[in-house]
Design a protein around this nucleic acid. Structure first.
Lengths: 238, 238
DNA sequence: GCTAGTTTTTTTGTATACAAGACTGAATGC
DNA sequence: GCATTCAGTCTTGTATACAAAAAAACTAGC
């Protein structure tokens, strides 16, 4: 009988909020954010029933979303065992940042070649405004601004496939970026490095832009490995 | 009553072949191949009921697979309209090959730096055997061998994330590779170009390896745009 | 003949049911 | 005390049902 109650309330509340898009649309973003921020303990199996209930949907749309996140590389799946958050180990962090570095370099190079003067100026202006009080922002805000900056450059590359690939890698690396931004040190260097990238782009020097980008991302990669250990450890203890 | 018959036969045949893995596992590879080879007309909505019936499963596992393929960029999805094969246009082909070029260069560079001598020799030996009668193979076989060659190099990069990203891009570009391999001209140049790449790798010259790889992939990109028009046109007329 | 509106048919979105596999833990034998 | 088996429970895999949206077919009016 508890079941009947649950069902009734589900239907009712669904009617209340249904006006907006489908269930899948609605829960996709939320689950993606949860996975990106490691709100699930890595390796620990997700309970579909529980998770579905928490979103007030049935397992059908939930599993569709989980399957997408598996394909995006944010979750693991093993048949008959279920879904789980992808574990973070040093090797994966390293690999992820190496790929990211390559893609960001390509992105910077192409953007430098293809963006219009107006687009470059808008990018510079946008960053100037953020940079003014970047160091006062919270780590979460810093990470968001940084991500946005890099994504804007990818957009200027005018390569849609590159943009999507980079978005995917960045989603998988989101938590790492967050950890790094918790270090005041990183928040400070970020500004200077972005400035160098913008300068090279303004000079219409693709090689220099790629080089500055590489330095910006690689730096993170090396030091990040250190930071990771502490950050990941934090994940595994509650 | 037709329904009842259908159902019964479904259950019976399912019992027959069930021994191997889950439905999802079984149909994932098949559907992926179908999408990669454009067995579906681009843009034309897939009928879930029909498709599910053809695989002898229900819509539930089918949709899980389709959702994965959407996340992998092989299919499109619009809510309330359904799934469809991603259309191929010149811009997308160009973008895809540009990304592929960047990733393959990275892959060649890293493999050159990281592979052991034994691994390089195995790669060379493997290709020598294929090259012997590469020009006599069918286009489909050529594409398979070419894909395998590039994937082996990615494996030698020892970067799992790079390998997966490249596999994904290559899956999306599979049909294009197939089209290009239908030109005898391409089948011939492929051998020579692979040889150059292997040579640079053997010399432990990462920059040269990346450069050869770039020439190999970029060449394809430029000429491919021409070839594409005919190949894509073929898709749209039956 | 054509358009606008209406009914019918398809098709999608999601809840639910149920079978089968994995897990747990108590009871049994060594 | 420890391993082992079996019952009970939990969880996943998939079929199915049904509502709601979209598409198609049909009709009436111009």
């Amino acid at each position: 009988m508890a079941k009947v109650n649950t069902k009734v309330s589900t239907q009712a509340s669904k009617a209340d909020r249904k006006p907006s898009g489908s269930s899948v649309d609605r829960i996709y973003e939320q689950l993606k954010q949860m996975a990106m921020n490691y709100r699930f303990r890595p390796g620990e199996p997700l309970n579909e029933v529980e998770l579905a209930a928490s979103f007030d949907v049935s397992r059908t749309p939930l599993r569709e979303v989980l399957n997408r996140l598996v394909a995006e590389g944010l979750l693991d799946f093993v048949p008959r065992k279920g879904f789980s958050c992808k574990p973070l180990d040093t090797k994966r962090v390293f690999d992820l940042y190496e790929v990211r570095c390559g893609l960001e370099m390509m992105s910077a190079r192409l953007a430098t070649e293809r963006a219009t003067d107006a687009e470059l100026q808008a990018l510079q202006q946008g960053w100037r405004e953020i940079a003014a009080d970047f160091c006062d922002l919270t780590p979460v805000e810093c990470a968001r601004c940084d991500e946005q900056f890099h994504e804007q450059i990818a957009q200027l590359s005018q390569n849609t496939e590159l943009l999507h690939t980079l978005q995917n890698v960045n989603a998988r690396a989101h938590y790492l970026r967050l950890i790094s931004m918790e270090q005041a040190h990183y928040r400070r260097t970020t500004c200077a490095e972005h400035h160098l990238i913008l300068q090279a782009m303004g000079d219409r020097n693709p090689d220099a832009a790629a080089q500055c980008m590489s330095a910006h991302v690689t730096l993170r990669q090396e030091e990040l490995v250190e930071v990771i250990k502490e950050g990941v450890a934090r994940l595994y203890m509650t």
